[in-house]
Design a protein around this nucleic acid. Sequence first.
DNA 1: CAACAGATAGACAGATCTGTCTATTTCGCA
DNA 2: TGCGAAATAGACAGATCTGTCTATCTGTTG
Lengths: 188, 188
Amino acid sequence: MTASRRDHLVDTALSLFNRDGFHATGIDKILAEAGVAKMTLYNHFRSKEDLIAAALRRRDEELRDWFVAEVERRAKDPRGRLLAIFDVLDDWFSEPDFEGCLFLNACGEYHTQTHPIHRLCAEHKAEVHGYVRRLAKAAGAEKPGRLAKQLGLLMEGATVMAHAAGDTSPARQAKRAAEVLLKAAGIS
Amino acid sequence: MTASRRDHLVDTALSLFNRDGFHATGIDKILAEAGVAKMTLYNHFRSKEDLIAAALRRRDEELRDWFVAEVERRAKDPRGRLLAIFDVLDDWFSEPDFEGCLFLNACGEYHTQTHPIHRLCAEHKAEVHGYVRRLAKAAGAEKPGRLAKQLGLLMEGATVMAHAAGDTSPARQAKRAAEVLLKAAGIS
DNA sequence: CAACAGATAGACAGATCTGTCTATTTCGCA
DNA sequence: TGCGAAATAGACAGATCTGTCTATCTGTTG
């Protein structure tokens, strides 16, 4: 029951952080929503910041697993997968609880580069970049690193614009741009 | 003295919101930093949210004026200006007080689409898009709206990646991608 | 000079925040 | 069944938050 209590806490915190933000979500709200006692929280985590870090780590796993699975389900060849990325984004943006990228939101609240939470976000982005880069390499891109970074810009740009404008169309605009970039990188 | 007192308050608030975020910046910190009495603030603004809105409006003006002036200083032809955008971003990312886009940060803290602060951010992005679109049209793009949206994704993507990674290189990556997109849009 | 609008300091209310402590209960497991 | 670890409710401290109020002072303008 210990592990599941902790998990439940992280789950609840994750969904509240996603919906309302980090500073705006108080410990008490998380505890009430989760139906967990305060000492249970402070038994598992040293501070709220620790809980935030745990929530981001879980989100990193959860999001990347889901994202990769969706991409690989939709296309079997590397080029198709690079483009499928943007279809998956489209689906993500359509979800009712889409509130932008939790990691970018976290960067917005914890600016300092050296802050542990900011670093977690940078690491998450680096992981995603690694995946795109592997796909780009498998697809035979001339410069896989460069292409992956460019596609990454489109992905992040689409995410923030979809959130700001409340509109999923950036996913499709990004996909069209990606097609152009793939061609230019020698991927047909 | 009235107007300057208000202006000073907005200036101070702007710089603290940019540095520390919105929820993390308390009224008292702003007042202490500005050397202004609390009643002066509540005489000019109905609430903290009002002050945030005023700060964002000022930032919108300030940023767009600066951005457009910088772009037009660097290049005289529309195509050159579309590319100069990314050089200006590079400069922006290099500034010591660069903390990402204040509007995206605000969206991250005020998620609800109907929230006045979120709407201000959407409006700011729409204004920027309008400028890029006019440049794209002047440059003879086949579909200026589409090109402007795609370039917008690169701009926003570069901004968030530069902030997350603490690295200005996304500006240059975005510029390379933009060159490809311009060519594809029939702009040489 | 007189009058008035605006700025000031600072107390204050009431809510909320993180984190600690205690005393009690629940639960798994031997 | 009984032990020990974990979870519980809730009081509590101390800080901080937004916003209000009052009483005083400053500065401009007629």
